[in-house]
Nucleic acid binder design. Structure first.
Lengths: 351, 351
DNA sequence: TTATAATGTGAAACCGATTGCAAATAATTA
DNA sequence: TAATTATTTGCAATCGGTTTCACATTATAA
């Protein structure tokens, strides 16, 4: 054979043994051109005999197309993100793409873009055809400069889709969750349950979803002639402990709310725990709602009424948009995912 | 320049603009040979100017080393597996490797290796340097032939590490959870709480961990002079519903157990739910223990006493062993991860 | 049967890096 | 200063594929 032998079998060996040129083997591999039945069969036989698999790096090098997509997520361990990933992967697979995942473990939130930029670098070196970035929540009024600059620069080099980004008004594609209609639906539901006094355990006001939710909540309540008392907004983190702490804070208030809307289900679980410790019955005395429809929310007692953010759809849509863009199809660069209100046991009619 | 221009900048452009040969640029890139300070600086300048990143596919093609590892997991959405992945990724990153993930969604359990073999194929094409495979639980007495054959064949082509595989006695590297000492610790703890009548809601007996646990349980109880009544073993699935169903079954028994050991925390949650519905107090009347230490187990009421399988360590160890093997270091091919008993509120002293 | 169009095939260039080899340059030593 | 050794360099081959181009073969039309 003309080339040095290495561990794996190559197209050269296949060609030699099938008695054809490498071009012919390549043509049966790609199907990009005609090959006579006779030779095709001969080639296929040898391929089969050796379990030959073409080297996709050589192929990509030649093609300038890696059929690989980068996906940067804050935390794969978190059910919301792992669902997004799963949706993304499932769709990518059907379209013949593979995903390269990087977890930044929320480092954009903690104002250090180290891991994120490291991954961006790695993924560029690996020549991904496009990138999906979910950079955690970012301060809207003064977005982290490095982060947005990086995305801007990156999107000059390849298609980029961001999810729930605070600054989607750039040239990147964007997928966002329709927090507004989700929040609306929840408020309408609670009002239909005759609730009048609300509290909101939210994230940092600097974080976009929190902002949107609080505003939507206020506005929707106004439509029902109910005014929201801003002192019943308590900023929180994302975890159970934080829910406990915030609920403790709410318990100090001169009068208690009848319905508490929480940043996510974990926070709701913490808040419910504290409320019960304080002797309140849930949902009889006080109702709680969460967000994200996490897996455990169905199983805790009481099960949590929550806004399902449709993580699977988010992942699917993001990848679909990305691939369409890569393949030159026309795509909208503003995609909104509808949420769904999941009614369970943690909210009850006010008596 | 000598080569056709493409979108990205290449080593040729860098060489040209820096006024040196590509070999020199390559040398400053890899650091594999001496380059005079003067030229090195010149090259670095141009690299910086263009934000040049070397094409890792070209590099890998030349090197025969992709610095990429394949990892096949049943379900990234499941906290146990996502923890494994996270551990794996964190370690890979520090060693300069990237992970390519495939989720088979338990298809080996459902006796169809389609997705698994598809991923194995894809990952081989991508020339991963090694593979980590967690193929779900497999029937021990008659292991799925396709699955084991594939792993055997694969491990002739590259280093493979399996996790909790039913048939580790092959040439693959192996990492397993020490179910035995975990179960022992739990039983000893429950016996110290004066429990004498046990039930076990387990998986299918065909599934290895269930087998091991049941045997260990039986043996450990015997050491304490307690005999386990086999009719108190109820096979289950992996979810909450299944826990409910199995507990309902246990409630039919002529006499109730005082401690119920469950396949995992989800099953425990379901079982607890049903026990309470039936008017039992948990843990006062009946104790429950789970396994896996899932994120929600800490937050449900009562919080679940459970065996932490140390998923993060599993992932880390598996990747470490794999990389060591790839890099020619000597590695043990039998690695056992120690578990940890996490004591919480769902078990109580028998009165 | 011959002219013409359609298919099938191989040689060689190319994708973007790395590296062995030999020549050129710089540093030592005599 | 000349001879010798140690460092730096660039050329060219290579990794394993794809694809253009030109030629050979067939099939179709005249």
């Amino acid at each position: 054979m003309s080339k040095q032998t290495s561990g794996d079998i190559t197209i050269y060996e296949i060609a030699e043994e099938a008695g054809v040129s490498v071009s012919t083997v390549s043509r049966v591999l790609t199907g990009n051109a005609n090959v006579s039945e006779k030779r095709k069969k001969a080639v296929l036989n040898i391929i089969d005999k050796y379990d030959y698999l073409p080297n996709s790096m050589a192929r990509s090098l030649s093609n300038r197309k890696s059929h690989t997509l980068g996906i940067i997520l804050p935390d794969i361990t978190h059910p919301f993100y792992s669902q997004i990933f799963y949706g993304a992967e499932a769709l990518a697979l059907t379209k013949g793409y593979t995903l390269l995942l990087g977890c930044t473990m929320n480092d954009t939130i903690r104002h250090s873009t180290n891991l994120e930029s490291l991954y961006v670098r790695i993924l560029q070196e690996r020549k991904v055809d496009g990138m999906l970035m979910m950079g955690g929540a970012v301060n809207e009024t003064e977005p982290i400069k490095e982060h947005t600059e990086m995305i801007d620069k990156l999107s000059e080099r390849m298609p980029v889709v961001t999810i729930n980004d605070a600054m989607p008004n750039r040239k990147t594609l964007h997928v966002s969750v329709d927090e507004i209609s989700g929040t609306r639906a929840l408020i309408n539901y609670l009002v239909s349950l005759k609730h009048k006094k609300f509290a909101f355990i939210g994230g940092d006001l600097a974080i976009q979803p929190t902002n949107v939710r609080l505003n939507t909540m206020r506005k929707t309540l106004e439509e029902h002639g109910i005014s929201f008392d801003d002192s019943y907004f308590v900023p929180s983190e994302f975890d159970v402990e934080s829910g406990k702490r915030c609920m403790t804070e709410l318990l100090q208030k001169p009068s208690l709310p009848t319905a508490v809307i929480c940043l996510n289900d974990l926070v709701a679980i913490g808040a419910i725990y504290t409320a019960r410790k304080a002797g309140l019955r849930v949902p009889e005395d006080i109702s709680f709602a969460g967000s994200d429809n996490m897996p455990m929310s169905e199983y805790v007692v009481p099960s949590i009424t929550t806004i399902d953010l449709k993580a699977l759809d988010i992942g699917k849509t993001a990848i679909e948009v990305l691939i369409d863009k890569i393949e030159g199809k026309s795509v909208s660069n503003k995609n909104v995912i509808k949420t769904e209100l999941v009614i369970r046991d943690s909210c009850k009619m006010r008596n």
